[in-house]
Design a binder for these strands. Structure first.
Length: 427
RNA sequence: GGAGAGGUGACCGAGUGGCCGAAGGUGAUCGCCUGCUAAGCGAUUAAGGGGUGUAAAGCCUCUUCGAGGGUUCAAAUCCCUCCCUCUCCGCCA
């Protein structure tokens, strides 16, 4: 959430930032107006309230001295003021909730150095690693769903039987590969990140903190009976971990990682890129996340990107790094680098990680602050996160990239420790 | 799931309608004292919003005693709902 104060101190900059996302600015003007009116009413309410409190004390004193007539008169006066207060307070509350409704769906301002652009076509390819269009042999040009079916390590039909389409089922070494990829990502980041195993079902508040609600209700799996949401990413519980807390600056950056299942309804995406593992309702992912000071944020962001890249490189995969343009940035993000892994079998660049810097946008929603080592008061932390490794698309890229002429899949050396002595997937 | 007890500041803990933003203690910080250490003495020690101020400080004011609602001139205190913790019983991987 944007700082409501900026609506009166910095409205031009807010509007300029939102304009870069191609947003209609009428709502923001309305929000600024609501903010100003709400504040004026609140000042009035506070004045009345102060008066009521003074009078109430006087009533108490009068009662104690036995002056009931004076007490009754004061009480009557106070009651009248109290009624007035209630009316104005009601108006202020209505304005406040209208303002909040707008701010909750208003996205973050893009960072100054995020590239301009309106859509995904304007994203900037920062670099491409390990990709050589001419270097792929025919045996690598087989899509992973065929490789998986042939080797018996990916069973989409059975997954669909149990849960519907887009619920993959991995078998044998395919299942091992899922687990190995996660274990690899955890092991590679254990030097700096505390491992967390959070709950996979969370409350509505928790989804609101990260910006997944109210805007993306249709994307979430909701358990009606218990009013819980299945997490779409570990970002949700990890960001809320420090909700309503005040961290010490000495503890920042605080780095966390978690391996969790992720659930996404993919409501708007029916029929698009849905073959095999390109888009699924449930998948495993290792997320890395940090709380940082604003000064630390840039360096931490670069580190998260480097770590996400490192895993792809270690797996021998080709990938490219995209700097998302203002128009394609996720709503909560100020700057995002997407990592797309190349899958030769389906000849596609698959988004495998999205590493974002949120500024204090999420922190304000979640009320996560830190106390500076020097000086007084508290400040909002900055939050950053990204996938260290998201299984399905990486699984697909591994299987396609390392497919051998005989149909088996050679395992990259970094995965050997997790395969009980096997060096390849043979089905 | 059933029965009961609770949730107060960094922590412990008092507080059943007004003199309570909250006794007392612990911890922490600063100062004094002190051969060293320990002890002792004194002071300070919540967050946030609005206003005032060139800024810092300060000053005025509001909110917050698990959360939300209600009663009242006045709520930590009374009522309702919810959340959480603990104990016992039941069930269970």
């Amino acid at each position: 959430m944007l700082d409501p104060r900026r609506l009166r101190t910095d409205l031009a900059a807010v509007k300029a930032g939102l304009a870069r996302r191609g947003l209609d600015l009428a709502e923001i003007d309305r929000a600024a107006d609501l903010e100003a009116r709400e504040r004026a009413l609140k000042a009035e309410v506070e004045g009345l309230r102060a008066r009521v409190r003074v009078l109430s004390k006087e009533v108490g004193q009068a009662r104690r001295t036995g002056d009931t007539a004076a007490a009754d008169a004061l009480a009557a006066e106070s009651r009248a003021l109290g009624e007035q207060e209630r009316v104005i307070d009601g108006e202020a509350a209505a304005l406040a909730s209208a303002l909040r409704d707008i701010l909750l769906v208003t996205p973050n301002l893009p960072a100054d150095d995020a590239p301009d652009g309106a859509s995904e076509h304007d994203n900037v390819v920062v670099r491409t690693e390990g990709y050589d269009a001419g270097a792929y042999a025919a045996h690598q040009r087989v899509p992973h769903w065929e490789v998986g079916a042939t080797l018996g390590i990916l069973d989409m039909e059975r997954g669909a039987k149990l849960s519907g389409s887009m619920f993959p089922m991995f078998r044998k070494q395919g299942a091992t590969l899922v687990r190995a990829l996660c274990q690899l990502a955890l092991d590679r980041n254990a030097d700096a990140f505390e491992e967390i195993r959070p709950p996979s079902l969370v409350r509505t508040d928790t989804m609101v903190s990260t910006g997944h609600l109210p805007k993306f209700v249709d994307e979430g799996y909701h358990l009606e009976r218990d009013d819980l949401w299945a997490i779409p990413t570990a970002e949700v519980p990890l960001t809320s971990l420090a909700r309503d807390e005040i961290l010490a600056e000495a503890d920042l950056p605080m780095r966390l990682m978690a391996y969790t299942p992720c659930f996404r309804r993919e409501a708007g995406a029916a029929g698009r890129d849905t073959r095999g593992l390109l888009r699924v309702h449930e998948f495993d992912k290792v997320e890395i996340l940090a709380y940082a000071t604003p000064e630390q944020a840039a360096e931490v962001h670069a580190d998260l990107v480097a770590r996400a890249e490192g895993s792809l490189r270690a797996l021998g995969l080709a990938y490219r790094v995209l700097d998302l343009c203002a128009g394609d940035l996720g709503g909560s993000s100020r700057r995002t680098f997407d990592l797309e892994v190349y899958a030769p079998g389906c000849d596609m660049w698959l988004e495998a990680s999205s590493v974002s810097w949120f500024g204090d946008y999420q922190a304000r929603r979640a009320n996560i602050r830190y106390r500076p080592a020097e000086g007084s008061g508290t400040h909002m932390v900055n939050t950053l996160n990204g996938s260290a490794l998201a299984v399905p698309r990486v699984w697909a890229a591994v299987v396609e990239t390392h497919r051998q002429p005989d149909g088996s899949v050679a395992l990259p050396e970094v995965l050997w420790p997790y395969f009980r002595g096997a060096r390849s997937i043979t089905g």
